[in-house]
């Protein structure tokens, strides 16, 4: 038998320093590749159909990412996807929806460092960033737990003065538009989104314009956590451009406004008159407050169906 042992020659010190020099040279001439944060429609990551984008700057004024600037048509495509996905999502068992929400929390946990880094990059302190990511994860778990319980809490058997068995149950409102808050770009988004989807609605949401990184990364989390395509669609862009379309689109059944501008909310109210969609304002002063963890948030995007079932005397 021949000896097949491979021997590694020890590199001389001068070779080593030459190699390091080469790396240094490459470094100095290297251009950073800015990640284009793409949007999330129907389980895919397209760019805006308009081809527009804006460059996001860090708190220190350095360019950190290119972000899609969505158009009205992107919004329309997202609503089409949300509409197509909604019925199937609503008919999934409550248990299954809870599992999927829990899975989102798991995937978020696995990528927490990335989210903390992104929050810091957008001006958060590292302590605040850590608290925000952790609370976000906990909040998903909180609403995951409610998935097979809210129906029992809010449904009722009603006494009526005739021979009928009369009962009321909840059904999801349908396609819900969500305008996420500017600050607390991750926690605010998740606190508003989780109760919408746990109740069987599908959602088209517009991320924070000034701090969009986490929402796009969150889309990557959703994509890897069994959430069916189209149930959550995430857009980025200017709120003033898209606000009126969210509220005037006839095929959006409800709009949840989580921002803090009275004028914007007024615009939504005025536009919604033409189509009678449900509008909900959810703008807590503090996204860590207990009011954000409540089953009533789920009730916001539910409709009550009452059935009169004839019975014998």
């Amino acid at each position: 038998m021949t000896d097949k042992t491979i021997k590694f020659e020890k590199r001389s010190a001068s070779d080593e320093s030459k190699a390091i020099e080469g790396v240094e040279q490459a470094k100095s001439s290297r251009l950073n590749v800015l990640k284009t944060y793409k949007i999330y429609i129907d389980g895919k990551f397209p760019r805006s159909e308009s081809g527009r984008y804006y460059t996001l700057e860090s708190a220190k004024g350095k360019a950190i990412a290119n972000v899609s600037l969505c158009s009205r048509k992107d919004f329309r495509d997202a609503v089409t996807a949300a509409r197509a996905a909604q019925l199937k999502w609503a008919s999934a068992t409550a248990y299954n929806r809870g599992q999927i929400l829990y899975r989102i929390a798991e995937m978020l946990e696995a990528r927490r460092t990335q989210f903390i880094e992104e929050l810091v990059l957008q001006g958060s302190t590292s302590e605040a960033a850590q608290a925000e990511v952790e609370t976000s994860i906990d909040r998903l778990v909180y609403f995951a737990g409610w998935s097979d319980k809210y129906q029992q809490i809010f449904s009722s058997v009603n006494p009526v003065a005739s021979s009928h068995f009369n009962f009321s149950i909840l059904e999801p409102t349908g396609v819900v538009g969500l305008l996420a808050p500017e600050e607390n770009s991750l926690l605010g988004l998740i606190s508003a989104l989780a109760p919408i989807i746990v109740g069987g609605n599908s959602c088209v949401l517009l991320a924070s314009g000034s701090k969009p990184l986490c929402s796009v990364s969150f889309a990557e989390v959703l994509n890897s956590s069994d959430v069916p395509a189209g149930v959550v669609n995430i857009l980025t862009g200017y709120r003033k451009e898209l606000l009126s379309h969210f509220s005037s689109h006839m095929d959006v059944n409800a709009v949840v406004y989580a921002g803090d501008s009275d004028d914007e909310f007024k615009t939504i109210q005025q536009n919604a008159v033409s189509n009678l969609k449900r509008i909900i304002r959810f703008s807590p002063k503090n996204w860590y407050s207990p009011e954000c963890e409540s089953p009533y948030r789920i009730l916001d995007c539910q409709e009550t169906k009452t059935t009169w079932h004839p019975i014998g005397n």
Binding site: R76, V79, H245, S248, H249, M250, D251, S274, N275
Partner: peptide, 10 residues
Amino acid sequence: QTGVYQSFDY
């Protein structure tokens, strides 16, 4: 006519 995207519901 209306400038608003429509729903099949109507």
